[in-house]
Amino acid sequence: MDALDLIDRKIVAELMQDATLPLARIAERVGLSQTPCWKRIQKLEAAGVLTGRVAMADPAKLGFGLTVFVGVEAPDHSTEWRDAFCRTVATIPEIMEVYRIAGDLDFLLRIAVPDLPTLDRIYRQLTDAVAIRNVTSYFTMERVKYTTAYPVDTRNR
């Protein structure tokens, strides 16, 4: 898919804010009738611009009140180690996000757990599965800002 036009950007912005909006409301907000709007949404999904629609939940109300960012330093940078590490983190549901990063650390993980014993279990599961040079944990005190919506430009240029 080529660059998104203004209407596509508006559709994406609306869906990122509230994916439960009725099609009629989205179409009205972006200046289309329902059928062309639906066809654009289907095209955005087929092109991989829209990758899914989910419900947002409060982690604390689900029993995951502790968020920990964990930095992982690899013992080496081989394909074998990286593949084993990626396979391992994919099997641990409390690991919500994994990023390969540049800098002093090699990977940054966002982990949601109910308590420290659960974090310790995950640490043991991870370090039992793959060799790790160093692990550094950062415990969150408060979530100041959180969004899943990217700041898509919806202005007419």
Rank of each mutant, 00 (worst) to 15 (best):
Gln34Leu: 08
Lys43Pro: 00
Glu14Arg: 05
Asp83Pro: 04
His77Ile: 01
Gln17Val: 06
Glu97Asp: 11
Ala13Ser: 15
Glu45Asn: 03
Gln17Thr: 10
Phe64Leu: 15
Val49Met: 05
Tyr150Leu: 14
Ile7Thr: 14
Val130Asp: 09
Ile101Asn: 03
Val130Cys: 11
Met56Glu: 10
Arg29Met: 01
Asp18Pro: 04
Arg155Asn: 13
Val144Lys: 13
Gln125Arg: 14
Arg40Ser: 05
Phe139Arg: 12
Thr148Gly: 10
Ala90Phe: 12
Arg110Ile: 13
Ile132Tyr: 07
Pro93Glu: 13
Leu66Lys: 14
Arg155Lys: 14
Pro36Trp: 06
Asp2Thr: 00
Val12Lys: 05
Val152Glu: 12
Ala19Ile: 02
Leu23Asp: 01
Asp83Ile: 09
Thr20Met: 02
Pro36Arg: 05
Asp5Asn: 09
Met1Thr: 03
Glu80Ile: 13
Ala3Gln: 04
Arg40Thr: 03
Thr136Gln: 14
Thr91Asn: 13
Leu23Arg: 04
Pro22Tyr: 02
Asp5Met: 00
Val30Leu: 02
Asp18Trp: 01
Gly71Lys: 07
Gly63Glu: 05
Val72Asn: 07
Thr140Ser: 15
His77Leu: 08
Asn156Gln: 13
Tyr123Gln: 10
Phe107Asp: 08
Val98Asn: 14
Gln34Ser: 06
Tyr150Glu: 11
Ala3Pro: 00
Gln42Lys: 11
Thr91Pro: 06
Glu142Ser: 10
Pro36Thr: 05
Val68Asn: 09
Met56Gly: 09
Glu142Val: 09
Asp76Pro: 07
Glu45Pro: 02
Val152Asp: 08
Lys43Ala: 07
Met16Gly: 07
Val98His: 08
Ile92Thr: 05
Gly71Thr: 08
Thr79Asn: 10
Thr154Asp: 04
Met141Asp: 12
Arg157Ala: 08
Val54Gln: 06
Leu62Trp: 04
Thr88Tyr: 13
Val130Tyr: 10
Trp81Pro: 08
Val98Leu: 09
Lys10Asp: 01
Val130Thr: 09
Pro151Val: 10
Ala102Pro: 00
Ala129Val: 11
Arg155His: 14
Phe64Arg: 13
Tyr123Met: 08
Val98Cys: 15
Ala131Arg: 13
Val144Glu: 10
Arg87Lys: 15
Arg124Ala: 11
Ile122Trp: 02
Arg155Val: 11
Thr51Tyr: 01
Thr127Met: 09
Glu14Asn: 07
Ile26Met: 04
Glu142Pro: 04
Arg9Met: 01
Arg133His: 14
Thr20Leu: 03
Leu109Ala: 09
Thr154Ser: 06
Pro22Arg: 09
Tyr138Lys: 07
Pro117Glu: 06
Arg124Asn: 12
Cys86Glu: 15
Cys86Ser: 15
Lys145Gly: 06
Leu15Lys: 03
Ala3Phe: 00
Pro151Ala: 12
Ala3Thr: 02
Phe107Leu: 04
Arg121Ile: 01
Phe107Met: 06
Thr67Lys: 14
Gly31Cys: 01
Ala112Lys: 09
Leu126Gly: 04
Ala24Phe: 04
Thr147Cys: 02
Arg87Ala: 14
Met141Phe: 13
Leu119Ile: 11
Thr35Asn: 05
Val89Cys: 05
Leu23Thr: 01
Cys86Ile: 12
Met96Lys: 10
Leu4Lys: 00
Gln34Pro: 00
Ser33Trp: 00
Pro36Ala: 06
Val113Lys: 04
Thr67Arg: 15
Ala102Gly: 06
Gly71Leu: 10
Ile11Gly: 02
Pro93Cys: 07
Leu32Ser: 01
Met141Pro: 05
